[in-house]
Design a protein around this nucleic acid. Structure first.
Lengths: 325, 325
DNA sequence: TTGAAAGCGCTACCAG
DNA sequence: CTGGTAGCGCTTTCAA
C-alpha cells in the first residue's frame, strides 16, 4: 500500500486533518508543525492520491488533451508548448490519442478541469457531463464551447498580396490543394488574391502535394523550376514543404531571393536555421499557445468567453523575398 | 453537478447499491431491474466517476504512458498500436509528455495500474509508490522493473552478413553514427560484421546523418552514389532514411536491385507502398506491441516477470536485394 | 493552532 | 435478488 496522510499523522504524532492542512500549506498550521509534517512526508515518500483529493475538492488541476492524430507533427510543437505553460500554472496535462468521442468520455470520467480538443475533422462534439471544452479547429459552426481558429485564408491572401506588391506576377502555391477544410482555406486565400488583383489565372499556380513532408515540397518545387516560365515567387502551405522547396531551389543553382522569392505558411520559431531566414505568414506559435491557456483558464473559472476566437496571422518578411521589376 | 448513482437510484426507485451492481453487470441483479437501471442511466447521461471508483476498488483500468519525446514519430506508430490493443482489453491509455520523473509522479498520484515508459536517455527510473513500471529502452543495467529491448546490434549485423553472403563487398551504412546509445548499437552491429568477415575496412562505409528525416537519407545516398567506387548495397538506420535513399537512387537512374541493393532497419507495415518493396530488418511492430501488452498485464497481475526482455530482429528480404557476382 | 467528524461517489460486504 | 452500511484518502467545516 502507498503511504497516506494517516501514516504521516501517526509518524508525526498529529491528527490527520492537520497533516492535510500542512501539506496544502495552510496558514492555520504553525511553522514548526508544518516543517515536521513536511519532513515526515518526504521521508515516507508520500504522494497525494489525486482520486481522493478531486473527489472531495471537485478540482483535479488536470487538463485533458484530445489528440487523435499524433502523426501530425505540426501539433506536437504546439502541444509541447501548451504542456509547459500549463505546468508552470501547476496544471497537469494528460493526453489521449483515442478518437474524440471516447477521449471525451475518458476525461469526463476522470473529472479533469477542462478538455482541450484538437480536431480538424470538425465532428460535432457533444459534451459529456459538465467538463468545459475548448477546441482547436474551424470556428464556422455555432458551438456551445469556445473554438480557437486561425485565419488561414487571410494568411495566404496576405502573403500573395505582398508578393504581388513586390512586383511578382508568377506566383506558385505548393500545398495540399485537395486536403481537409483547414488546407482548403489556405488555397482559398491564395485564390482570393488572384481574383481581387484581377490577374490572369495562368500566372498563378497551385501544385498539389499529398502530405506535408519535406520531400513533397522538394518534388513540387522541382517540378515548378523546370517550367518554361518558372515562377518568381513560391508560397508553401507548411514549414516542411518550404524546407523541401528550398532544397530544390539550391540544387537548381538558383539563389534566394534574387532568382526566386519564398514565403511559408506556419509560424514557429524553428525557422531560423537556414542560410537565409525564411519569410513566414501565420499566427505565431507562442501567441496561439498563450491564447489557448487564457481561454482554458477562463472556462475553468466559469468566466464568460466568446465561442469563436479567430487569431490573426502575421506576415514576417525576411531576406527570402525581394522586389522585382 | 454531474449525475451519480444516487440520482439513478432515486429515478429508478431502487437502492444505490443495486445500481452499482447493475452497472457493473453483476449476476446478482435481476434482468428487468438491470434493464431499467441501464435505461435510466443512459437517459440521465451517467458517467461513472473514476476517482471514486478507483479509490475504493484500487483499480483504475488505466495505463500511463510516459513519452517525453513526442517529436520522434517512430514511436507514434507503436504507441498508437499499443493504445488500440489496450482499448480492446478495456484499459484506458493516458499519455504524459513531461520528463520521466515528473510524469511518473503524476501517474503514481493518479493511481494508474501500470506505467509504460519510453525513454532512450536511459536515465534511472526510481519508482514512486508501488505502481509497476515497464520500460522500453536499453536493457543493459540491472533494474527493478522489466525493460523491453530490441536487439539492434544483431539486426544490423544480420543484414550486413546477409548482404555479404549475396556477394556484396562494398556496403554502406547510413545512420546516426554519433547518436545516442540506441543508434550506436546499430552501428556496432554493422562494424561487428566487418570484423568477423575479416574484410578490409575500406570496403565498408558509414555515412553520418544528423537526424532521421527522409531528406537526410536522400543527401547521404546522393553523396554515396557519386563515389568513384560506389557501394553495391546500402543499409539504412531507419525507414525514413531509406525512403530518402530510394529517391536518390531513382534520381541517379540506377535500378534496384540490379545496380544497388538496399535494406532498412525498422520493421513496421507502412513499408509496402514502394515500387519495389523494401527489405527490412528489425522487430516487427506488432510483435513489440504484443510483447508490451503481455508484460503490462503480467506486472498488473503481480506475476513474475524477467527484468530484461530482448526481442529478436527479423530479416525480411524482398526484391530490393539481389545476389551479385 | 489543532483535532474530530462529515462526506465526496463509489464498491463490497452482509443482512434480509 | 435487493438494501443497508462501512470505508477508500482526502478536504473542509466546526469545536475545542
Amino acid at each position: 500500500m502507498s503511504v497516506t496522510i494517516k501514516d504521516i499523522a501517526k509518524s508525526a504524532g498529529v491528527s490527520y486533518s492537520t497533516v492535510s492542512k500542512a501539506l496544502r500549506d495552510s496558514p492555520l498550521v504553525k511553522k514548526p508543525t508544518k516543517d515536521l509534517i513536511m519532513a515526515v512526508a518526504n521521508e515516507l515518500g508520500y504522494q497525494p492520491n489525486i482520486a481522493a483529493r478531486s473527489l472531495v475538492s471537485k478540482k483535479s488541476f488536470t487538463i485533458g488533451v484530445v489528440w487523435p492524430t499524433i502523426e501530425q507533427t505540426v501539433l506536437s510543437k504546439l502541444i509541447t508548448t501548451i504542456n509547459k505553460e500549463l505546468e508552470e500554472l501547476s496544471y497537469t496535462t494528460l493526453i489521449s490519442i483515442n478518437e474524440v468521442k471516447s477521449a471525451l468520455k475518458i476525461f469526463s470520467r476522470y473529472q479533469v478541469d477542462a478538455i482541450l480538443v484538437f480536431d480538424s475533422s470538425q465532428s460535432i462534439v457533444s459534451s459529456y457531463s459538465d467538463v468545459p471544452i475548448v477546441m482547436h479547429g474551424l470556428a464556422n459552426k455555432q458551438t456551445p464551447y469556445p473554438v480557437i481558429d486561425v485565419n488561414r485564408q487571410k494568411a495566404t491572401y496576405q502573403a500573395a498580396q505582398y508578393l504581388y506588391k513586390m512586383g511578382h506576377r508568377y506566383i506558385s502555391y505548393i500545398g495540399d490543394v485537395e486536403g481537409d477544410k483547414l488546407q482548403k482555406e489556405k488555397v482559398k486565400g491564395f485564390e482570393q488574391a488572384i481574383l481581387e488583383l484581377e490577374l490572369p489565372t495562368y500566372s498563378f499556380q497551385k501544385i498539389r502535394v499529398n502530405n506535408f513532408e519535406q520531400y513533397d515540397g522538394y518534388e513540387a518545387a522541382k517540378q515548378l523550376l523546370t517550367l518554361a516560365k518558372r515562377p518568381t515567387a513560391i508560397l508553401t502551405g507548411s514549414y516542411d514543404l518550404a524546407r523541401g522547396a528550398l532544397q530544390a531551389i539550391y540544387e537548381s543553382n538558383l539563389s534566394i531571393p534574387n532568382d526566386i522569392s519564398i514565403i511559408s505558411y506556419d509560424n514557429f520559431p524553428a525557422l531560423e536555421h537556414f542560410d537565409i531566414p525564411l519569410s513566414t505568414v501565420g499566427v505565431p506559435l507562442d501567441k496561439i499557445s498563450e491564447k489557448t491557456i487564457e481561454i482554458l483558464m477562463k472556462v475553468i473559472n466559469d468566466e464568460e468567453v466568446e465561442t469563436k476566437i479567430f487569431m490573426e496571422p502575421e506576415l514576417k518578411i525576411t531576406n527570402s523575398c525581394t522586389k522585382i521589376s
